[in-house]
């Protein structure tokens, strides 16, 4: 436990090498840290090496769920875990049609019985509070195009700092033409 609480990495939708060559180098530098205690990955890791690399970040506490392109892996469809006093569920999101629909996601969070639902697939990062649930999408860490054919994706991932009753989310985005990421902070309170 650090004084900032335990850092949880929310990341996913790599699609390397299918849709993007690699994670932006500035992200790689940021992720090269020993401060991350848990990894929650929304899937679509692309290559075996990505999954292996994710496991080196936080060791055992690395949970990857099955994306639509992860048929070569043996990831579970969903994963539920406790972070601080929050119950966090994770799902890739292609299973929930229509994609990225907040009402459907809230119901899915209810189904899993979680306070926070982390999902991906749309490749657009977002934080929504709806129906007593927090819906979090860390976006695509490589900025890969999404399933609906949008290519203007901003690479992003999130770090979640958890203290007992509050969660602070740091969204790292690499805007077009920039070399350094922008950081946004959101605090979630029950």
């Amino acid at each position: 436990m650090t004084e900032y609480g335990r850092l949880v990495l929310l990341i996913g939708d790599y699609h390397t090498p299918q849709r993007k060559a690699d994670v932006p180098s500035c992200f790689k530098e940021l992720l090269n840290t020993d401060k991350i205690g848990m990894v929650l990955c929304t899937g679509n890791v692309g290559a075996q090496s990505v999954a292996e690399q994710l496991r080196t970040i936080a060791g055992e506490d690395c949970h990857i769920v099955c994306g639509d392109a992860d048929h070569d892996f043996n990831f579970p469809e969903t994963w539920v875990t406790n972070v601080g006093e929050f119950k966090v569920g994770i799902v890739h999101g292609h299973q929930i049609v229509p994609w990225g629909d907040d009402n459907s996601l809230v119901k899915f969070a209810g189904k899993l019985g979680v306070d926070i639902l982390v999902s991906g697939h749309t490749h657009r990062n977002s934080i929504v509070e709806l129906g007593g649930k927090f819906l979090i999408n860390p976006g695509s860490v490589t900025g890969a195009c999404n399933a609906v054919g949008e290519f203007d994706i901003t690479p992003s991932f999130m770090l979640m700092a958890v203290q007992e009753k509050s969660v602070v989310l740091y969204t790292y985005e690499l805007k077009e033409g920039q070399t350094e990421p922008e950081v946004k902070m959101n605090e979630l309170k029950r």
Binding site: N103, V106, K107, A109, G110, K111, L112, G113, G131
Partner: peptide
């Protein structure tokens, strides 16, 4: 199954809302 029960409850509560 717990999951189905929770799913049903959250469907109902969303309708109630």
């Amino acid at each position: 199954p717990q999951e189905s029960m929770r799913a049903l409850r959250s469907a109902i509560s969303s309708l109630a809302a």
